[in-house]
Simulated assay, not measured.
Amino acid sequence: MTRSLYSDLAGESPAHRHLSDEDFLRGLLTVESALSTAAAHAGAISEADAATARETIQGYHLDVEEISRQSADGANPTIPVVTALKAIDPTGIHPGATSQDIIDTSLMLCLRDATGEIITTLRDLAGLLAELTRTHRDTPMMAHTLGQQAVPTTFGCITAGWLQAIMRSQQALSGLQFEVSYGGAAGTMTATHPHGFAIQDALATELGLHNSGLIWHSDRIPVTTIAAALATAAGAVRKIAGDIIFLSASEILELREAQPGGSSAMPHKANPAAAIACDGYARRVPGLLSTLFDALDCRLQRGTGSWHAEWQTIRELAAATASAISRCHRSLDGIVVDTHRMGTHLSGTDVGHAPGIADRVLELYERNNPR
């Protein structure tokens, strides 16, 4: 079950497979299994009980549609999943956890894996931009400020600016921490005291997640930190797409996508379709980010609606970001640069420090990506 044809297929990003409803709900089972193992490692339950729990979870058939329907009754999907597991055999299931622990941790697994794919695509995109920057370090063209011709620059300086933003976005995403959640009913780990902190640490180890040692049930900054970094990457590629669209306009025509889109009504057109799609995906992201920042108002020890608003929103934000980056890569891959056309638009020859600016960005790129 994908969110939509346009989101998941047109975007062509491997990140999408980690963001579906199925992956999120399967993640609940992954977390429950790891939790039973962690509880045994911490001495809260026996190894035999943990083994029974893992066997129960492994044998459980997840019906995504049915669980989704049942989720409404308790306002979250963990409740029907745990109820179904305990109906099979309650031994070792859900030790000391609350629904929020399982959902938040599953979300972190989804986001960690999707972000890894997004970073890979950004790395490939940076490679394309670095090559364009090397090739066109000295290619003169007119710069534009406030939509008007300004003074000469070089196309390599322009692409170096794009590259700089992509490297910064990649760095921000690479530095993210995807945090395990384990706090119990009201964030006090009472049900597994005195083993709570040991379970928290073991659960993080089992799942390969970060453990701050803190409880973040009502502290949603771990979510907004990830969302903001993803949204920044979306904004970075939207800027590139906007420039490509402008420079592809018929009156300018300094750039042309290798595989431009057509028109159903005007066969003469060669639309910068990939850049336009990038802009469309990225344009959705600020609104999604706003919802997540609004959810920082997480009242008392469990959000009443604010927490619930996060589950789909942050996965959709990650998916839209992934699609935008993928389409930007498609736009730049093989892009045709009309250096003659750039030359005809020049109103001067002094490009100032433009080549040197390109060199500085390339030096940074090559330092971080040695050949």
Rank of each mutant, 00 (worst) to 15 (best):
R256F: 03
S71K: 02
Q148F: 12
A51P: 01
G262M: 11
T224Q: 03
T339A: 15
R341M: 03
T291P: 04
A39E: 03
Y182A: 05
T188A: 13
L332N: 04
I103E: 09
D89F: 02
E316S: 14
Q301C: 07
L85G: 01
D101R: 05
I215V: 15
G287C: 13
A97K: 06
D279Q: 13
A229L: 02
L111C: 09
S33F: 07
R327L: 09
N271C: 14
G356I: 05
L176M: 08
G156W: 01
L62D: 05
A227N: 08
A198W: 01
Q70I: 06
V285A: 08
H136N: 13
D350P: 04
R220Y: 07
A10W: 03
R302M: 05
F24Q: 08
M142V: 09
T205A: 14
L288N: 05
T37C: 14
H340V: 14
T154I: 08
D21Y: 04
I215F: 04
L207M: 11
F155P: 03
T321A: 15
I103M: 15
D243T: 01
I45T: 06
G161M: 08
P90E: 06
P286K: 09
P77R: 00
L111H: 04
G92R: 07
D294S: 14
A277V: 02
A97W: 05
I158E: 10
A198S: 13
R327K: 15
A53G: 10
A234F: 01
D49I: 04
E316A: 15
G183I: 04
A282K: 06
T105D: 02
M342S: 03
I103V: 15
R341G: 06
T188H: 00
E22T: 14
L111A: 10
R26T: 03
T2M: 12
S68Q: 01
R134T: 11
